[in-house]
Design a protein around this nucleic acid. Sequence first.
DNA 1: ACAATTAATGCAAGCGGTTGCACGGGTGTC
DNA 2: GACACCCGTGCAACCGCTTGCATTAATTGT
Lengths: 344, 344
Amino acid sequence: MSVTIRDVARASGVHISTVSRTFSAPHLVNPNTRSRVLACAEELGYRPNRAARALITGRTYNIGLIVADIANPFFPPLIKAAESQARKHDHHIFVADTNEDPALEEEVVRALAKQVDGVLICSPRMNNALIEQLSREVPLVVVNRQITGIPAVVMDVAQGARLAIEHLTACGHRTIALLSGPRGSWTSREIRRSATATARAGHAELTVIGPNPPTEVGGLTVAEDVLRAGATAVLAYNDLMAIGLIEGLFSAGARVPEDVSVIGIDDIMLSRLTRPKLTTVATPTAAAGRAAVDMLLAHGDDRRSTAHLHLQTELVIRDSTGSGPGPHSPADPGDVNVPGGVAS
Amino acid sequence: MSVTIRDVARASGVHISTVSRTFSAPHLVNPNTRSRVLACAEELGYRPNRAARALITGRTYNIGLIVADIANPFFPPLIKAAESQARKHDHHIFVADTNEDPALEEEVVRALAKQVDGVLICSPRMNNALIEQLSREVPLVVVNRQITGIPAVVMDVAQGARLAIEHLTACGHRTIALLSGPRGSWTSREIRRSATATARAGHAELTVIGPNPPTEVGGLTVAEDVLRAGATAVLAYNDLMAIGLIEGLFSAGARVPEDVSVIGIDDIMLSRLTRPKLTTVATPTAAAGRAAVDMLLAHGDDRRSTAHLHLQTELVIRDSTGSGPGPHSPADPGDVNVPGGVAS
DNA sequence: ACAATTAATGCAAGCGGTTGCACGGGTGTC
DNA sequence: GACACCCGTGCAACCGCTTGCATTAATTGT
């Protein structure tokens, strides 16, 4: 079938252990022998079987990456960055899609546990206790969730939500709706917490609508709720919902930004291309993917690493937000980035 | 470290082979013993190590999925469908991104070969000879490429391109540009072949511009070439390029569809949401992902399966196409699907 | 009642590697 | 010239699991 270490040993007239060392501990083998072995290996097309190696070394050179929905435009840049970074370190990457189902998350982590060096869970929907439990079974890094004791990469959406609400109140909006995300989303809770506090500080009223599925449809279907609440501005859990909402508002006869201002979160590719172009809070998705992989791979060295990496977000003002009702000056910049701050 | 078959054996007072059979050949073990073993396994949290099993059975229950660019919106629905279908058959899926680099495709296939039951290569950029070579080293299914002897799932873009060009000529366009895709793309060649033939039959002139990177930027940068060629209509290799092109045309002062009609291919989510909504050839991406996985898993049974599955495409007329120059009747349907035919 | 099946389990080899240990021979030291 | 030492290699056990074969006990046929 496939060419093994034994075939190479036979061809080059040495013991299999020497062949093994040629690949995994070259400094232990005589240079002449080594080159002979390498030549034979090359000629036979030998490739070490990583699974077999893993059996004894415990290192698989694989990583698991779990996301809620591959088709959600938020994830592909993260997956791409993670994959690229992983392969830079000679690792392969399993991708699993849980369809926003917490039970599936658990199942997949367990199923993958034995054949990976660690698992990245992006935007987990499980509860903290379960995540802690799982992290005892396999090295875990979590993206967009903070749990003490679990290494994590989080986007600072609280700060992003603050910038968003401040932008809206500065534009004169006093009745703001918040479209929350899926149940179990830490990000959604953070946004809500921060948005609520910021709105109160800005003397604006904040109506929370949700939870909602984090999709275009999720935004589309609540358009009427938004209008009924009398909101003149909306912050959506993500861009996809914001875009769906804009469609829904349009169908209901409301114009964006003239009648209602809308802000999304994520800054997915789509947001630059829809009309009106979406004002949004940009999250550093690719950077998060890279950082999470690095953190996972470092995990092995400094055991029990428990670092939390916070990535800053920034408000990108485009065309879906405008001045609120009453005698206020219109805010109408082109496509300006307002950089946000950093948390520890 | 981790609980193994031995731990379960000790706990339930049987030999490890009995534990093994409890999981992989339940009918060979006494029902009483079996339930006792299962109880112990459950209690200890035993999970079989698939890599170890694969070492001896040769079946890994893993699949490799190789795409040119995860962040290209064409791929995520395919990946999602493939992953879902794979897990339905209890398989996990490695995802690799080759950045449109043929050399990387080869490297990744080889690297993955030992730890998967087969590899799915989507829209490969390698040459046929190399693919044939690789298919001798690991079961392969190819998406969007036809090679005799290699099982494949292809979208019938030739037929889609024909419908697209016919739509344009019917609208009165006589000078049409074709934005071709990346070098090495079978799909691009198919489109070109079919578009050329259809244009000739429709007494229209077809100018081929490219090859181009299959991205928004790829379309954006050739807007001037399109105008210089005097084209009043354009068929782009994919929606992303079409959308970029529309942006480019807009910057150059040309309006879509009034001055130039644009058709894309793929019908990615974006295309419904940009303004103008994009007329495009819809490809059944998710179906292709599912079918490819099924084909790969069936591959094992009827050895040397060499089936080619053709999936039909259809023209979706939206707002980016309109009547050409001169005294022609305007074609202006809303959002109509014109179903295409099927190939074998 | 006894040979012949059959069912359930144990034994041990082996999948493709890695790795601690032992061994042989060449150097350096005094 | 005897001793210690190091370098390069072979030996064999083992990682977690499967599986052909042997073994034993229970069942069946006549």
